[in-house]
């Protein structure tokens, strides 16, 4: 019964946090969109396409942030065998994969008008693509294992292995990119962020973080509910078997 104690407290905590994070998500994203689409100037170099950056850059940040959350939860799940950590790692994966997909799609949509091609093997886009494959591998593995406890442990190991490998993969891809430097590309995002870009970027990034919290809590809730549904179904099956015998 101790197993249920923490999730029960979590359910109460979640119902307190969720209304706040929902409101903050909506507020931040609406004001972020206002600044991203209306109240900011076009870039002197990129023109109106700079507005794609307000989605692309925060999404790319979130792709990495979600993987870090997944890895941290996986570490907690392996070390302390905390049932909430198990659920959190599993719930974070599809959200992170979603943000990664957005970063890829918007990167391509920005590349076509700016680079004149849908795909450039630039270090950043390539790293994000590999991150996307890491998410897909995690989700495929967790879904392939029927026993929920075994699935969580296998997923946790894979998430941690992926996490320690990300810096090496990133380094190798950056380095590969300098070997094959394409003729002339505008650095994407880059260090030179104009002040007018900062406000929409920050608002969108914060909005995405609260979106992550809201969806993560909802997904964790349903995972916990489903675990109890399974336990109850097993108990009922057991009872009817006993009654029959």
């Amino acid at each position: 019964m101790h197993r249920f104690a923490n999730p029960a407290r979590f359910q109460r905590l979640a119902s307190i946090i969720l209304p706040w994070s929902d409101v903050l998500t909506a507020g931040l994203l609406v004001s972020g969109l206002y600044f991203a689409l209306f109240a900011s100037p076009a870039d002197y170099q990129q023109g109106e396409t700079v507005r794609i950056m307000y989605i692309h850059v925060p999404a790319a940040w979130m792709a990495m942030f979600s993987y870090s959350v997944m890895a941290a939860a996986s570490a907690a799940s392996l070390i302390w065998k905390h049932p909430l950590a198990d659920v959190a790692a599993r719930a974070a994966a599809p959200i992170g994969a979603g943000f990664t997909a957005i970063a890829l799609i918007t990167g391509m949509l920005w590349g076509e008008p700016m680079w004149g091609t849908w795909w450039v093997w630039d270090a950043r886009l390539t790293s994000v693509l590999i991150l996307f494959f890491l998410y897909l591998g995690y989700m495929a593995l967790v879904n392939a294992i029927d026993n929920p406890a075994a699935a969580v442990r296998a997923g946790a190991i894979l998430a941690l292995v992926g996490f320690v490998n990300i810096p090496i993969i990133k380094f190798s891809v950056d380095w590969w990119n300098t070997l094959h430097q394409p003729a002339s590309v505008i650095k994407m995002g880059g260090p030179s962020i104009a002040p007018s870009m900062l406000l929409p970027l920050v608002l969108m990034a914060l909005g995405f973080h609260f979106y992550f919290v809201s969806v993560l809590l909802r997904r964790m809730r349903s995972e916990l509910d489903l675990a109890r549904v399974r336990a109850l179904e097993d108990a009922i099956a057991l009872n009817s078997e006993e009654a029959a015998a």
Binding site: L33, E48, R51, I52, A59, L109, W110, E112, S214
Partner: peptide, 23 residues
């Protein structure tokens, strides 16, 4: 969008579709 309507609105549309879908 200064002639870039397709690219800008597709980006925002894709983000809306994916985030909305997951939510």
């Amino acid at each position: 969008m200064g002639g870039y309507a397709f690219y800008v609105w597709s980006s925002y549309g894709a983000a809306l579709l994916i985030l909305g879908g997951i939510a």
